[in-house]
Write a protein that binds this DNA or RNA. Sequence first.
DNA 1: TTGCGTGCAAAGGTTTTGCATGGCA
DNA 2: TGCCATGCAAAACCTTTGCACGCAA
Lengths: 144, 144
Amino acid sequence: MNNIEYKTKQKQAILNFLKNNRDNHVTVNDISVYLENNNCHVGITTIYRYLDKLLEQGTVRKYTVDNSTSACFQYVDPSKTCHEHFHLKCEVCGKLIHLHCSHISELCSHIFNDHGFKPDMMRTVFYGICSVCSQKQENNGGNL
Amino acid sequence: MNNIEYKTKQKQAILNFLKNNRDNHVTVNDISVYLENNNCHVGITTIYRYLDKLLEQGTVRKYTVDNSTSACFQYVDPSKTCHEHFHLKCEVCGKLIHLHCSHISELCSHIFNDHGFKPDMMRTVFYGICSVCSQKQENNGGNL
DNA sequence: TTGCGTGCAAAGGTTTTGCATGGCA
DNA sequence: TGCCATGCAAAACCTTTGCACGCAA
C-alpha cells in the first residue's frame, strides 16, 4: 500500500540501455534483444511496464514514426531541454536521422510566439529525402 | 491489367464519411462503426485498402497521435493542397492547422543546404499543442 | 466478360492482462 | 515478512495477406 518503488537489476539494465542510447530512439524489441545478447534476460512485459512508469515520470519520451508499427522511446536528459534535437526521416531508404541544430529552436520559438502553437519536436518528424538517396536518384535520371 | 479504378458503394461511403469529418481525424474503427450504424456494412479490409490508396493520392493524411494505438486519418481538402502550407497538429484537440510562414521555408533551405536533407513539407506535420488547448491546461492548473 | 473490389478467415506483429513466483526493503 | 516486481502464457488489439466470390465497366 505504500507504493514504494523497488530497485531491481532489470530496471537498472533497461535504464542504462536507454541512457547509453540517448541520441537514438529505441523500440521495446531493441531493448529486449540487446539485453538478451548481454546475458541479461528481461521479459518484454517488464520492459513495457517499466517504460510506462518512465513515461509518467517524464524520464522517457514516446513517439511513433510513420510506417513503423511499434512505438519508439527515447531517454530525456533532465538537464537538457531537447528543443535542439529533431528527426529527419528519409522516405526512400527509411533512415532516421538525428540532427542537432540551433535553427530549429529558433523556429519553435517563432511558431510559439507568433502563431501560438507550441511544437513538440520530440514527436515531430521531418519527412523527405536524404543526401545519399537524392544523389542516387539524380544519377538514375529520375528513374526508380 | 489496365489499372482502372472502379467506383463502388463502399468507397463512396468511406470517402463521404471522411469528407464530413474533415475537421477531425478518424480511425479505421470509427469509419467501420459509423458505416455499420448506417446500415452500410463495409469490411475493415476494404477500409484499410481504400485508405492506402487515398494516402497515395494525397487525398488523406495519416497520423499517429500519442495515446492512441491505432492510426488516424484525415481528409485533405484538394484546394488546400498547397506546397506553401505547413501543418501543425494539436495533440490535445486534434485540430489540424494550416500555416503560411516564410520562416519554415527558410528552415527547409537551411536543412537542405547545410545538412543535405530535402524535407517534404507536404508530408511533414508538426505535433504540439495549440493556443486554445494550452490556455485550457493553464487554467486547470496543469490537471487534466 | 474482364479484372478490380470486396469480405471472410487466418496470419503476423505489438501491447496488455492474469497469475503464480521471485526478490527488494 | 510485506509488497512490489517479474515473467510466462494467453488474450486483446491493430493491420496485412490469401483466396474465392461479387460486381463495375
